Amino acid sequence: MPWVVRVLVAWGINILALLVADWLFASFTIGRWGPIIFAGAVLGLANVFLKPLVTFIAIPLILLTFGIAYFFVNVVMLLFTEWVAPNFSIDGFWTYVGATIVIWLVNWAVWSLVDVIVGDEARRRR
């Protein structure tokens, strides 16, 4: 899959994940459609550029907690996205935790589906 298509698919998946989290949690609110499109881009860019830096800084804590602290690196990416994106609000620690889990699950499920589809397409071309 060309990198441009992969970036656009990742952006769409982030938008879908944010929509699902908004639907599941009453204290997770995001405006439609401009803010959610922008938030999907911010979340993707934060995961590409900011997450490696935060992970590097948190390596001692990640090792000390046997990887549990890495989950909170993902929470920080969501916190950053909320801070940057307009009309986006998350109230409460447990909503951050739940939304992070939901966003991870949606990303995992949809990327698994994309991998199956792209894998099937590649096998048919052989």
Rank of each mutant, 00 (worst) to 15 (best):
V9L: 13
A10R: 12
G12F: 04
G44M: 13
V42A: 02
L45K: 10
F49D: 05
V48M: 15
A39S: 04
V5Y: 10
F25W: 01
G12H: 05
W11T: 02
S27Q: 14
F38Y: 04
P52N: 08
L24F: 11
I30Q: 02
L24V: 08
W11M: 06
N14P: 01
T29Q: 11
V20E: 01
L43N: 03
W23A: 00
V7T: 14
F38C: 07
A46I: 15
T29R: 12
G12S: 06
F28Q: 04
W11F: 02
R32M: 15
A39W: 02
L43V: 06
W23E: 07
L24Q: 06
G12V: 05
G40S: 08
F28H: 01
L8C: 11
P52Y: 07
W23K: 06
A17C: 00
L50A: 13
A39R: 01
F38L: 09
I30Y: 01
A26K: 10
W23D: 02
K51E: 14
G34I: 07
V4Y: 02
A39D: 04
N14G: 02
L8V: 13
A46F: 09
R6M: 03
K51I: 15
I30G: 02
L50V: 15
L24A: 07
N47W: 12
N14Y: 01
G44W: 10
F49M: 07
R32D: 15
N14V: 03
A46Q: 08
A17D: 00
N14D: 03
W33A: 07
R6V: 02
L24M: 07
G34W: 09
I37T: 03
G40M: 05
P35G: 11
W33L: 09
V7A: 14
W33D: 14
V20C: 00
K51A: 15
L16H: 01
V4W: 00
I30W: 01
I13F: 06
A46V: 15
P35D: 13
I15R: 08
V5N: 14
A17T: 05
R6N: 08
V4H: 03
V9N: 11
V48P: 09
W3Q: 05
A10Q: 12
I37S: 05
G31F: 06
P35R: 12
V5A: 13
A10C: 11
W33G: 09
F28L: 03
V20Y: 04
G34N: 06
F49Q: 06
A21K: 05
K51G: 10
V4Q: 10
G31S: 09
F28R: 05
G40V: 07
A10L: 12
V5E: 12
A10E: 14
A26P: 07
N14K: 03
G34D: 06
G40L: 07
